[in-house]
Design a protein around this nucleic acid. Structure first.
Lengths: 239, 239
DNA sequence: TAAATAGTGTCTGTCAGACACTATGAC
DNA sequence: GTCATAGTGTCTGACAGACACTATTTA
């Protein structure tokens, strides 16, 4: 690095520029009794104080290593758990979305199993329709962020094993099929579904372990470790 | 809005906070004589002055309506053309990528037809390998950004009509097949390819218009207007 | 026994991949 | 005529979708 660049860097002060606000928001989805839910957090500070909003906030440039660290930190701070599945959705930015000024937010979406969550008192789950809408008006443009995140989830359910991430560690094939059906918003064919999932080699049978359902017993499975999302050559279609 | 919130907003000054740098970069791909190229721009300012980098820069919060406006403006400023295809790739942010400090960049990728571009003098095309690598070291983490953008392009070529966007407005099916093959990095089967493209109804024959090639004439087609990317149920595989 | 859910077998349609073929124009 | 490229016809295999069937457990 030459001397001029050194000098430039020493005299550089971001405070001398008009910059946008930059924040990170996380859309956390789960399934509770056959419906999709997203986690919202009641705001403690202005603006939109006491409104419900997605967990999120500003990047802590002293302590966060990367944007993903910010997302993971926000998740831990506001909900107390580490997420098993986290994916960046993208960035939204304009002069209108935040009353404090031009604002950019980088949105992540996460999938969790609802049983393994201890909800903090300032958080709750809100129901998400099969089109990605929620029944109340959230702070900022967070209704839109949830909708976009849900559309991504739904799209991916057509050709990946992403719905696995809302299940507990042990599950039956019927439970997995139900997770797909809830996300996709329609019924799937049973034998075709099983064929597809088993062929993908992304889950394994737990030998001898079965779950008692209302009628007969069902074989338990678990997700194979070291296997990430599985992508299929062909999409699956609901209904 | 209540009075307290009003007061908070009036006294809010982003300069009182430690915030990251936020910029927008654009990866512009084209095909020139059977290879993929990306556009790079020689930096006029510190840091990395005179190094080659992606076209991009800071958001102008006075004039840019949204992040996408910034991307479109950067494209126009530095390359003089409006892009026909522009898609957001995502955001990258950490404390290392920019010597001025913690920095976030939102990357877009664009596809253009090389014949319709008049290259500005401080820009050039650099060749991109079938794995997304370029033969030289660019400013910041721009080598990585190009690689990620190229992987996205390649993935999408498996199940969409995205390669259409590197062709001129009139083209033959052989030219379209060649664009797919260059992006995918392998040969495709001719009759299968034609069946798939024609069935998708995303292009139309230009009646009576043919192009003279080295040997015989070939039918010309054009992309249908009002049709966006077409997504297939099944992927196409190269080689 | 009936009811309900777990799990299987098999046929069909769609479509990519392979490959052989015909058509046309330059030389 | 040959060569090269444009363009077609047809078989095959993979796999989703439909649907009928069997198996197991509770009440």
């Amino acid at each position: 690095m030459d001397k001029k660049e050194q000098k430039y860097l020493e005299s550089y002060r971001i405070q001398n520029y008009d910059v946008p606000l930059t924040s990170v928001d996380v859309v956390i989805f789960t399934i509770i009794s056959d419906s999709i839910y997203a986690l919202v957090n009641q705001r403690k500070n202005h603006p939109h104080k006491s409104s419900w909003a997605l967990p999120g906030g500003f990047i802590d440039i002293k302590n966060d290593k990367s944007i993903e660290s910010t997302a993971i930190r926000k998740l831990a701070e506001k909900t107390g758990f580490k997420t098993p599945y986290l994916e960046q959705l993208g960035a939204t930015g304009n002069g209108q979305r935040d009353p404090r000024g031009w604002s950019v937010t980088i949105t992540y979406f996460a999938l969790v199993n609802s049983d393994s969550v201890n909800l903090e008192s300032d958080c709750r789950w809100i129901k998400v329709s099969t089109e990605g809408n929620v029944d109340e008006s959230l702070a900022f443009d967070h209704n839109k962020l949830i909708e976009d995140a849900f559309q991504r989830l739904k799209n991916k359910a057509h050709y990946t094993t992403i719905p696995l991430h809302v299940l507990p560690s042990e599950f039956t094939l019927s439970e997995l099929q139900s997770a797909y059906e809830i996300i996709l918003g329609g019924k799937l064919n049973k034998s075709g579904f099983r064929r597809r999932i088993l062929k993908s080699q992304i889950i394994e049978e737990l030998p001898g372990e079965v779950r008692q359902t209302k009628t007969r017993t069902a074989q338990l499975y678990r997700a194979l470790e070291n296997k990430d999302l599985h992508f299929y050559m062909r999409e699956i279609y609901a209904k």
